[in-house]
Amino acid sequence: MDDNKTVDLLAIVRDSNVGEVLDKLDRELVGLAPVKRRIREIAAYLAVTNARKQLGLEASPPSLHMCFTGNPGTGKTTVALRMAEILHRLGYVRKGHVVSVTRDDLVGQYIGHTAPKTKEVLKKAMGGVLFIDEAYYLYRPENERDYGQESIEILLQVMENQRDDLVVILAGYKDRMDTFFQSNPGMSSRIAHHIDFPDYSQQELLTISGKMLEQMNYKLDASAQVAMADYIERRIRQPNFANARSIRNALDRARLRQANRLFYAASQDNQSVNTDDLSLLTASDILASRVFEGGNNTATPETAT
């Protein structure tokens, strides 16, 4: 072994343009500090593995299967897409596409249906990333004849034998994924990276809403900003809160109300609308939400206005 050989670690990172993806991740995704840190760690690990390979320090290829846990709307799918890009740039997957599936795509309805179905999905995901959303549904302990187990076995086999052909990312709620791994120790031991996605803070959600509106070419006026912050504060405390997804839905509904308002105003006084009118969301568009109708929130009605 030649100990004097050197390899430029930074060159590997530079050549693969992986820094670009990581920066994009930092820039475009709000919050998620622990997730970003983990992804940087993984990227560094992969770059080092590449460097070792160049120097002839052969090691078995790293296991790259991952598990993303977190509440709905915390960005698991988005991060999976970025992860695929990082893996592709560092040469750990050949094509870098993401095949996103759920239980329905893997498990069949009758005997003998599951294996071909699962294999078909696996074949499509070869060379890229297979993203299994709500993976815990694959295992249904209450029904011992459930075909999910068969699907898990095929997945395990391919995850083990064709590690350089595809990367599997499982995603789901934290507690249910934990139960899933407890009942499938084989799955747990084959997944090297467990990444937990934290919930967003109110401030982060407000930033997210700003970014979403920017993409949709809308803006909030000053009073609407205040209303939006208030809305987020109330919405978090309500059931079925799905982080960024709830924000997106709220904005979609606000756009609907804005359209309605503009239409009504136009029909009243027959005025034409300009770009500003079309892109401005006012406080009234947001305050008309159900969330402000008292009831199960603890905020006093005064703060709603």
Partner: peptide
């Protein structure tokens, strides 16, 4: 031997079959 394989991105899937 099995169905024709549509929507594949990588040869590994065909080789597997």
């Amino acid at each position: 031997f099995g169905m024709p394989m549509f929507d594949l991105k990588d040869a590994a899937g065909v080789l597997m079959e």
